[in-house]
Simulated scan of single mutants.
Amino acid sequence: MTLRTILAASSAALALTGMAQAAEHGPFKIGITQNNVGVDSYQTTYEQAFIAAAEENDMVESVVLDAGGDVARQIAQVEDLIQQDVDAIIIWPTNGEAVIPAVRKAHQADIPVIVTNSNIAEQGFDFVASFSGPDNITQGARSAEIMCDKFKDMGIEAEARVVQISGQPGYTTAIERAKGFEDRLPEVCPDVTLVETQPGDWNREKSQQVMEAFLVKYDDIDGVYAGDDNMGVGALNAAKAAGREDIIFVGATNFSVGYEAMEAGDYWGSIYQSPVDDAEAALQTAIDVLNGEDVPFLNYFDTPKITQDNMSEFTKPVF
């Protein structure tokens, strides 16, 4: 049996479970365990949007939990939601592999699981009804295209050197955005060199320290790719402090600080992603699964390129 067949069969079974629950219970009780609300403004805004969307829907009762970045806590939260006999569980994984046993338990309890924002590892796919979120590999690829296009405009695509600041190690979003960038960059700019990658852990201060070390280690840096704008602005701050104004900065997930840095002409481009869209899509995906609707396993929402050239077409992020 192929992976696609397994996923289709799993999704169909979960959909039938959802219809039975709807008939028996009426309003859906949907639990969510989030990754780490306090780590950045994206996750904070996501939580606020999720709560607002649930409160506005008379057919939803929500249980909103936050793992605080702790895998063990998130596993315990999933087990608690199972004990509460919720109709569906939404999980924003703290770690794409470590949470699989907990997701399996929910599946075995006939509770459909929707993974949001950052997917779990592939070996857990047959325990999941749907993934709702961005295509992070595509985001990384689009960031590579933004950087390559800028290098070509500058006429340095044959010699440019790039460093990368990735997200938290082991975190699926970080892995996928790095992979998308690393795979796409040599396809569009084969002579550009990615000289080193270090994690910034989604943290601006740590990313600034990583960039400070890069600037000491390498005299020639033409571009920086960061897994999100929070880290990218940290790197930008380090470059400014060192008087290095000749570096092209490209990120992903356009934070308000990234948008402002683009307005100031200091930061070239990013990928536009809304935490409000992210949260509302996750809740709607859970509702659709419980209603027995045909939901794609990979339920992506679009995340377009944003640069200094087209940023006027986009509203400044609120996070």
Rank of each mutant, 00 (worst) to 15 (best):
N310Q: 00
K179P: 11
D294M: 02
C189D: 06
I175W: 10
C148Q: 05
K240E: 15
V86W: 00
H107M: 05
D288N: 05
Y171C: 06
P190W: 01
D220F: 11
P317W: 04
A8K: 08
P275E: 02
A67P: 06
K29R: 11
S256C: 11
T193M: 13
T44Y: 06
D135C: 07
H25L: 07
P186H: 07
E245K: 12
T94H: 11
A9E: 14
A76I: 09
Y259G: 01
P134K: 14
G251C: 07
M154H: 11
D219Y: 06
K179V: 09
R184K: 14
A98S: 14
G68L: 07
W268D: 03
L185G: 03
M311N: 04
P317A: 04
N95C: 08
G26Y: 04
A261Y: 01
Y300K: 02
I32G: 04
G170D: 10
I175A: 11
V224H: 04
T17I: 08
G124I: 08
D58W: 09
E260H: 09
G258Y: 00
A282P: 02
I32D: 02
E196K: 14
S143W: 06
A12K: 12
G68C: 09
A286R: 08
S118A: 14
M154R: 13
T197R: 14
G232T: 06
G243S: 09
P275R: 05
M1F: 13
D277Y: 03
Q164K: 12
D87V: 07
D80L: 08
G133H: 02
R184D: 09
Q308N: 01
L194N: 13
P275N: 05
F319V: 03
D58G: 12
S11W: 00
K316F: 02
A121N: 13
F181A: 01
S270I: 00
D302G: 09
E260K: 12
P112F: 00
T285C: 02
T197F: 09
A109Q: 06
A23Q: 13
N291M: 04
A282S: 04
P101L: 04
K150R: 07
P101R: 05
G18C: 03
N36R: 14
I91D: 09
G26S: 06
P186G: 08
F301H: 03
M1P: 15
G292A: 01
K206D: 12
V188K: 07
Q84K: 09
M211S: 14
Y42D: 01
Q21H: 14
K152D: 12
A238E: 10
E61A: 10
